[in-house]
Amino acid sequence: MNQSESEGKTMKFTESYEYEAPVAKVWQMLSDPAFVTSRDENLEIPDPTVETNAQANQIVSTTSGEVPPSMIPAAAQRFLKGGAEFLIREEWRLVDATTIHGALRAEGKGVPAYLQAQVELKQTPAGNTKATMNGEIKVNIPFLGAKLEKQALSFAPKLIAADKKAATDWLANN
């Protein structure tokens, strides 16, 4: 993550990256369940279930499945039996021809933790789309929460790489 800090009991973060496509094409990509599935597969999440409802100016996408034990930090594994079921909800709103606003929330079933973020996708003068994400991670496990939040942030490069690979592949083929 570009920036992170612990404020109180929540770990805040900011991340920026760019898609090599204009906002209109990124909007098409976000509305395609195949893109979301590909992103999850790049994270090695087996058999994610993806539902996408795309309308003129709004997209709501949910992804659910099970996180393999190998992706769960060691300190958290003792609190969970096997993997953990998760749900990710993404909501996107097309503001105008150059801007998309998004909100996402990820949480696990029976896991005292969540990630939520606000995302702005803005077209650059070069015709690409810059993503700026501001969010927070919260783990409600006494004495281990802050440590697990930091470990969760360490997965950020893998998450962004999975998103970028899925986006690059989708944009090249659509």
Rank of each mutant, 00 (worst) to 15 (best):
A117C: 04
T63V: 14
E149W: 07
G110W: 00
M11Y: 09
K25N: 10
I59K: 13
V111L: 15
K147H: 10
D47P: 03
V119G: 05
V36K: 06
A74V: 08
P68I: 01
A84F: 10
M11H: 11
T99F: 04
W27R: 04
M1V: 15
A146T: 03
K147N: 06
I141A: 05
K147R: 12
P157N: 01
V26M: 08
N173H: 11
N2P: 00
I72T: 00
L153R: 09
L171F: 08
W27G: 02
A113V: 08
V67Q: 08
E149L: 05
L144Y: 09
N53Y: 04
A167W: 04
N174D: 12
T14R: 13
T62D: 01
T99Q: 15
N134T: 08
A54R: 04
K138P: 07
G82M: 07
N140H: 02
F13W: 09
E120H: 12
N2M: 14
Q77V: 02
K130I: 09
L171C: 03
P68H: 06
H101M: 02
G83R: 14
E51V: 15
M11S: 09
G102S: 05
K165R: 13
L144C: 02
G110C: 13
K165D: 03
I141Y: 02
A74G: 14
F86P: 09
A167I: 04
G8A: 10
E20D: 12
